[in-house]
Amino acid sequence: MQGIHLNDVHVHFDHPSGITIAVDGVTQQVPPRSFVSIVGPSGCGKSTLLAVIAGLQPATSGSVDVNGRRVTGPDRDIGVVFQEDSTLPWRNVRENVEFAMQMAGVSKGERAAKAAAAIELVGLKGFEHSYPATLSGGMRQRVALARTLALQPGVVLMDEPFAALDQQTRIFLGAEVRRIWEQTHQTVLFVTHDISEAILLSQQIWVMSYRPGHVIDVIDIDLPDERDASIVSSPRFNELHNRVWASLQKESMRGFQDVETA
């Protein structure tokens, strides 16, 4: 049972004014070595679902299996790239990339070799000794990506890693992630609210509904494997975009009305 298997995952949050159902029975799977994105409006529980898979958030009911193992807590075989800047300002690029390996007790020599490879992979060669304060937001996310990839986890989870970046950097980095994935072919689950980003990157898209969050549509992206940022202007890309947008539109409106009337 390789890949990610979600079996009727529910997540409820209790608070004084009642219960919020963040994830409402998601049963899906990410096939091994494939790239799947979750798109959905803000507050649809997509990040919560990712946190459950990462072992950071317990599911209220249901189960998650990653590469045949039941998820009960964080696991180094499950790499996570966060939305927030998670580079450590007191470590330079190389030391940041080595962080996860260092915590895992990887030997110094192996760390150095793997860090160098990961830094090259994300296109940061020459910046090994720079500190995060001197890097742009996009470069810092590359550092975070390299840190995750260097540990060579079985699956990589990305929680809106480019959400805080400007549009151009975002598209560019999206294409970079695609290029990297074509080299590594790791199992990736990518969360975003950006449809173009999801289509550009993925082989499959799950559309999630506003609360209670569940997967309302699964769309296979039949674009060629070899793609770059120029694909966004192709007719097929547009069709797919419209398809995802149609699913999402009803949901976004519902979320919007919910907020308006709340």
Partner: peptide
């Protein structure tokens, strides 16, 4: 969060 995911 980072610390937890790398099981520090």
């Amino acid at each position: 969060k980072l610390g937890r995911t790398v099981q520090a």
